[in-house]
Design a protein around this nucleic acid. Structure first.
Lengths: 217, 217
DNA sequence: TTGCAATCTGTACAAACGTTTAGTAGTATG
DNA sequence: CATACTACTAAACGTTTGTACAGATTGCAA
């Protein structure tokens, strides 16, 4: 994506910033002023370089006709490649602890990642699924499904509590198995109204604590 | 927000559509043509009405200086809660297999998740980090960092090959440890130019195979 | 009927704007 | 040492573009 010089990078950054703030791109003279230049030519050179390197697209001869074609450009063009996933709350992967609580806000993720309808996000608490590499603090992306495949991970409501388990069908019985020997499997009998599968886990997102993270759910 | 006539509503819709498609607003003459008008005045009247009713903002006398101030306007103004992460390619978590190859495209993720600068995404191949719950096929979000904390996961270039390991400082030595006893640690000596740390792993994204996934990298 | 707002035609103009030519300086490439 | 690219000054050119003026038509409310 890059092969830009420091100066070109700054011009591109200015273009993005201006577009974000004003809703339309700047004129060449505005860019000139912003960088303290005394001639249009300098700006023209930068724009030509940015266009040659694919960072922007221009309509020759037309005012303010600068389109940013990078990642931010697609964003501005609103190709809408990001999908909003409602954050439902926390889910216990050990003992069922907390039910699905009302989370505030939603999470934007690339629609190509899990692109389905009716998906939502839950935070995992507990370590009953650590054997399957799902650990406490992970966010699981859940798809509301009517049926489940054996072996897949599901979010189930057991006695009103949400929990992540592996879905295994054994004859007429359905067993929700943890992936940690310290926990016991849960048998889902046919007449058991106290337990129901909410959906299938289609993805996991883990964040490692670092400097200045901000997502608070 | 509304109080717009049918005609004004359509003009506003056209403005939104044009901005989304081109990345910059249209000229008055472009609007005129789009609506099959034969005079600028009609367009000017509509724009004045839209501005009076608060749907758009304009900079008088300046080309294409139309900013949409409704809900879509905020979108165009780039409240931009999704951030684009370049996809660099694959990274070996077992033996170094493939170098960072040029991946096509980028991945949109909520900026609150990993919100940093210069981050990128790699797909993990191999199982040397399975003890740390990072498995083959996972996408790791990498932040280019100058320094690393002991115990954190890093992406390192060893002999031109990218690999995920745990970063451990032991006195003057730096050791890149796998999280799988089947693999051997890599010692990073001070004069070893063949090995360098690219960045810190700040996140992991896992996709479980399901019906009709589309992200192909 | 009168008045007002919305919608539009047709012509014209001055300013804003992108572009070009000519030239300078610095740095990197081979 | 020539070539190429980046980054800029200075001045001038031609057109795109917003705006204004002088109307016309329709519908709706006082």
């Amino acid at each position: 994506m890059n092969g830009l010089t420091e100066r070109q990078r700054r011009v591109l950054e200015f273009l993005r910033d201006y577009l974000r703030r004003h809703g339309y791109p700047p004129t060449i003279r505005e860019i000139r002023t912003a960088f303290g230049l005394r001639s249009n030519r300098g700006v023209v050179d930068h724009l030509r370089a940015l266009e040659r390197k694919g960072s922007i697209r221009r309509l020759p001869g037309s005012s303010r006709a600068i389109a940013i074609s990078g990642p931010d450009g697609e964003n501005a063009e609103g190709a809408g490649r990001a999908k909003a996933y409602p954050v439902a709350g926390r889910v216990a992967a050990g003992r069922p602890e907390e039910a699905l609580e009302d989370g505030n806000g939603s999470l934007l993720l690339d629609e190509r990642l899990f692109g389905g309808k009716g998906d939502f996000v839950l935070e995992v608490k507990g370590d009953s699924m650590s054997g399957a590499h799902i650990v406490s603090g992970d966010l699981v992306v859940v798809r509301k499904t009517a049926s489940c495949e054996t072996g897949s991970f599901v979010v189930a409501l057991v006695d009103g509590e949400a929990t992540v388990k592996r879905y295994v069908r054994r004859g007429s019985r359905v067993v929700l198995e943890p992936a940690n020997p310290a926990y016991a499997p849960i048998v889902l009998s046919a007449g058991n109204a106290a337990a129901s599968v909410v959906g299938t886990v289609v993805g996991v997102i883990r964040r490692y604590p670092g400097r200045g993270r901000a997502f608070s759910r």
